[in-house]
Nucleic acid binder design. Sequence first.
DNA 1: TGCTGTGAATTATTTCACAGCA
DNA 2: TGCTGTGAAATAATTCACAGCA
Lengths: 259, 259
Amino acid sequence: MATGRNHRPATSRSRGIPEATVARLPLYLRALTALSERSVPTVSSEELAAAAGVNSAKLRKDFSYLGSYGTRGVGYDVEYLVYQISRELGLTQDWPVVIVGIGNLGAALANYGGFASRGFRVAALIDADPTLAGRTVAGIQVQHTDGLEQIIADNGVSIGVIATPAGSAQQVCDRLVAAGVTSILNFAPTVLSVPEGVDVRKVDLSIELQILAFHEQRKAGEEAPEEEETAPPAAPPAAAVTKRSEPGPDGDVPAVMPA
Amino acid sequence: MATGRNHRPATSRSRGIPEATVARLPLYLRALTALSERSVPTVSSEELAAAAGVNSAKLRKDFSYLGSYGTRGVGYDVEYLVYQISRELGLTQDWPVVIVGIGNLGAALANYGGFASRGFRVAALIDADPTLAGRTVAGIQVQHTDGLEQIIADNGVSIGVIATPAGSAQQVCDRLVAAGVTSILNFAPTVLSVPEGVDVRKVDLSIELQILAFHEQRKAGEEAPEEEETAPPAAPPAAAVTKRSEPGPDGDVPAVMPA
DNA sequence: TGCTGTGAATTATTTCACAGCA
DNA sequence: TGCTGTGAAATAATTCACAGCA
């Protein structure tokens, strides 16, 4: 998962919804939208939970934080619930978004259909490469970084997506924040530091893969009960210098794309 | 963030490491690698925590699950810790990975430098589009989906990345699993169903944005204390049919890319 | 009768705070 | 003295299990 917030203890504000619940609402919303398209009028917590990939007790508890939107003995009204969750998530309004860094990843994001469909609108694509400026990606002209502040201001953008190489991410972030952006979705493999009040969420391929590798290794270990160590390293203190097999010429997690 | 596991209660196996800790290890590893490159010999929990964006108590507690790798009064030996965490994550071995769906996103992933650098190797790129087959992306020839099973078997692949449109994701997933893949990183906006023992992690742009929107809305609400409702919907039971402003012609979260 | 809504119990995670070693 | 390692306390999230309404 992605993350890196800046919040008061999750359940703080008046009708405070737990962070874990907020993270699941989009899941429910997607499942509900699919049902809505098939004109299904109502769902039980059991059915909806299955569609969203969670268990029904959790789903009911989650919904209980929003209010009592179900009908006992029947289930939930699909359309009504779609509306309620959308509203709770702030999707009944339109969020202009800028994407900075239009490499393969940035282009993929710009082309992302789900973007436009639910409350979000790509207001601008921005890249530091002058040769990219003016080119059209996903029907939108790429603009040069120079105009970043102006673009943010003109479009009232409060959400920014960073898809630049790691090296430029913090700098881009600083400019976005200075220009008024208060929520950032970061695809660059770096920890961004932001002032209080700015939310950052992180999406990081290499972290996800490493978590998978951890579990994969466990599985292998379970098949063959006895652990077989490959190359025991030197002791911790003293001259503990055993490098990993090959640290590799590349440092770590280079940029996702040449922006 | 991403998720969707299949695990015994996190802290189960003998030296069971909490899931939350596992998810942070890659973060520490990245910070440590950066220090290692700068030839920094040791770090304190405080410094490393700052670099990784967590607080030091949490970091120390995390490390305590791995063992006592620090030195009181001094800190942690960078190289040694890099090795220990790499080993714990299973990165001292090489993980061949296949990417299925070579659109913009798949291409971005294939080009992702951090991929190759730390334990992962792109063994193959696979796409259903026959016109893509044979083309070279990131120095690797794209192969047609027909050969998927063979490719998995030949390369001993256990980790698969799905970057196809939502519509094909489950089908691709089924084939990967049948061919022996036991860990899947899913970029398609769908809930995948997999048999017991297969891990799925999800990366979903639209979910991340929706979570940001939620918090963004809260911020706006705090500035202007009084909540101003836009379009109150009909009541839940009875004829509750108020559709969201404009459900839009597109359903929800279409494919990320035309694979 | 069937399914929601929710207190209570359980489990997981974070944070505190300090003993103890280098 | 300085910083780790870790019990214990606090907080958060999940699950249970059942009362209660349609």
